[in-house]
């Protein structure tokens, strides 16, 4: 088991280098601020050191695998599991185990998929897992924020009690600010992204029991 998860890739300047097992991190920001890319990099960072990736996606499994492959040499079916909630007929992938769920609102289906994949990882001796959920915003289009909140509370607890690392994305400009604040409260920390007035990508880090950082450029 990992003592810590290396997260030093995506954010420059040593702002966030490692996180303890059981940590849940949300990557948030407005549309087109690069959340998805940062989240995928966070998921992929430990891949070369034999960690596993278990990702719930509201897009197709193929899409997310293609995106992950931009950050790793090659995906190995034994260490990547995707829960595809897009409702498409899932095709068998060569580079990932997949579980198909009919809709993002099928929370029981999602939880069964996650439990199945985690058993697969266990039987293959993959003990360090990064869980992705991309994205919370899509779940919020299908269910009330109350239901999504309750689901995420249980889900984050699953991750903290199994010593994994959880990575989530949330679009800040597609929901009521109150809903965004309520959801943020579920996580140990937040990586917040924005585009500055001059068009530069910036980030800051809040939570994790530390002082918030100021906005910095990538």
């Amino acid at each position: 088991m990992n003592d810590t998860y290396d997260v030093s890739g995506p954010l420059p300047g040593g702002v966030l280098d490692e996180l303890p097992p059981g940590t849940n991190v949300a990557v948030i920001g407005p549309t087109m601020s690069g959340k998805r890319d940062v989240a995928l990099q966070l998921l992929a960072t430990g891949y070369e050191t034999d960690e596993g990736i278990l990702c719930i996606t509201t897009d197709s499994a193929v899409t997310i695998c293609n995106e992950l492959e931009r950050h790793v040499d090659a995906l190995d079916r034994g260490r990547v599991g995707i829960i595809d909630t897009s409702g498409n007929d899932g095709q068998e992938l060569l580079n990932a185990m997949t579980e198909n769920v009919s809709s993002p609102s099928d929370l029981t289906g999602i939880s069964i998929g996650a439990a199945k994949l985690s058993q697969q990882f266990k039987s293959r001796g993959v003990t360090d897992l990064r869980y992705g959920l991309i994205s919370i915003s899509t779940l919020l289009q299908y269910m009330s924020s109350k239901k999504v909140f309750k689901f995420l509370h249980v889900y984050t607890k699953r991750i903290s009690s199994t010593g994994a690392l959880g990575i989530y994305t949330l679009n800040t400009d597609s929901h009521d600010p109150q809903v965004v604040n309520t959801m943020i409260g579920l996580f140990d920390g937040i990586v917040e992204l924005r585009e500055s007035e001059t068009g530069e990508s910036e980030f800051r880090v809040r939570g994790f029991g530390r002082k918030p950082t100021s906005w910095e450029r990538f």
């Binding site: 929370l107 439990a115 009330s144 249980v154």
Partner: peptide, 26 residues
């Protein structure tokens, strides 16, 4: 929640309780 069956059962419970709560945000 590290238990597979406990985790799935807990999620199932909250789905059952919110049955009918399809409201996109009340």
């Amino acid at each position: 929640m590290g238990s597979d069956i406990g985790f799935v059962s807990a999620i199932r419970d909250l789905e059952d309780d919110d049955f009918g709560d399809t409201g996109l945000d009340a």
